[in-house]
């Protein structure tokens, strides 16, 4: 069965390594914080100026001065710090943040990503996404395999305005884990009960399929 959004987040959480600083984008990526594997310590960076972001506050404890990049009220964990936006993006551009997880509208087989603009329809701005994808060593895209119209978002070439070029290394969807290497998608894992044929049929970009594709494993 295909994963739900929480399943995608849970699978991405398996990629976390001890000691990493991690930036989570808005949407599915935010959910990754709920599934940190046992024994792993990571710290979350929010580009509006927080290291050591914690969970949402309890009702009545919301602080208007303490929000994440999605403008949601949040808390901090012990050892947290605050800083200005220039320092925040110094952390990001300077590659002090080890992992960035973000959503996308399209990803192409050479690692291009489009996630900020649909010409004539949605022009909200790129926020910090262009800075994040231009510099992060390790970018995982969390998204659905197809858009609402049923068209594949895993493409030979992006059709929407780009956010960054050749930067995405890994994509986790409700169906599969894909790696991007040598200008192609490589099928690494399939969601429990999802067939390789279904993944192939829903992937427009070039997909390398090994003889054996292991199933995702969740504890």
């Amino acid at each position: 069965m295909a994963l739900d959004k929480n399943g995608i987040a849970q699978r991405i959480a398996q990629e976390l390594k001890n000691g990493w600083y991690v930036n989570l984008g808005i949407g599915i990526p935010t959910l990754v914080a709920n599934y940190i594997p046992h024994g792993i310590e990571v710290e979350f960076q929010s580009e509006n100026g927080i290291l050591g972001m914690g969970p949402f506050p309890f009702e009545g404890e919301e602080d208007a001065d303490l929000i994440n990049a999605g403008k949601q009220t949040i808390t901090t964990v012990p050892g947290a710090s605050f800083f200005d936006s220039a320092t925040s993006f110094a952390m990001i551009r300077g590659q002090h943040v080890q992992l960035t997880v973000l959503g996308a509208m399209e990803v192409s087989q050479n690692g291009d990503i489009a996630n900020w603009k649909i010409p004539g329809k949605m022009v909200k701005g790129m926020g910090g996404a262009m800075d994040l994808v231009a510099s992060a060593e390790n970018i995982i895209v969390a998204m659905m395999h197809s858009n609402k119209a049923g068209e594949s978002k895993i493409l030979k070439e992006c059709t929407l305005p780009l956010t960054g070029v050749g930067c995405v290394k890994k994509v986790v969807t409700e169906l599969a884990v894909l790696e991007i290497k040598d200008g192609k998608f490589h099928l690494i894992e399939r969601a429990p009960g999802v067939s390789v044929e279904e993944i192939i049929s829903k992937t427009e970009g070039d997909l390398v399929v090994p003889d054996v594709v292991r199933e995702m494993h969740f504890d």
Binding site: P57, F58, E61, I67, K71, Q72
Partner: peptide, 12 residues
Amino acid sequence: EKRIEQRTVRKN
């Protein structure tokens, strides 16, 4: 006023 744009809380 310090308005909150997205009030998000967890259950007590």
